[in-house]
Amino acid sequence: MKELVLNGTKQTPSVNFNAASGMLELSGRSIPENSFEFYNPLIEWLNEYTAVALDLTKIKVYLEYFNTSSSKYILEVLKKLKEINEIAGKEVSVEWCYDEGDDEMMETGEDYEDVTGLQFTYTEMEE
C-alpha cells in the first residue's frame, strides 16, 4: 500500500502515513478553511489501511495549532484507528506531543483520549 506523504503549509499539517512500518505522523498547524478537503484523503487512506494494518500502529500527533473545523476531522482520524484496534484487534498507540508549557494542547489530547478510548502517551517537546 502506498504511503501518504504531504508537506505542511501555513494552514495544513505535514502528513506521513506509512503502511509498511505502521508509523503515522501528523504535525504542524491545521487551520484550513475547508477541513473536509484536507482530511478526506487521510480518512480514505486509513480505510484502506484497516485491511492491512500491522499488529502495532503508532500515530504521533504534534500540532502547534488547530482550528475547530479540523478538530472534528482529527477525531475522525482517531476513530478510524479505534476501529483498527477494536474491530481488527490490532494494537494502536497514540503519542500526543505538545509544545513546552502548552497545557491547553495537552488537555485537548486528554479530551480525545477520553472520547475515543485509545491509549495515549504525552510528550512535552522542548522549545
Binding site: 478553511e33 475547508n34 473536509f36 475547530t68 473545523s69 472534528k72
Partner: peptide
C-alpha cells in the same frame, strides 16, 4: 464546514 465549536 463549521463545526459549531467556534464560539465555545
Amino acid at each position: 464546514g463549521g463545526a459549531g465549536l467556534g464560539f465555545i
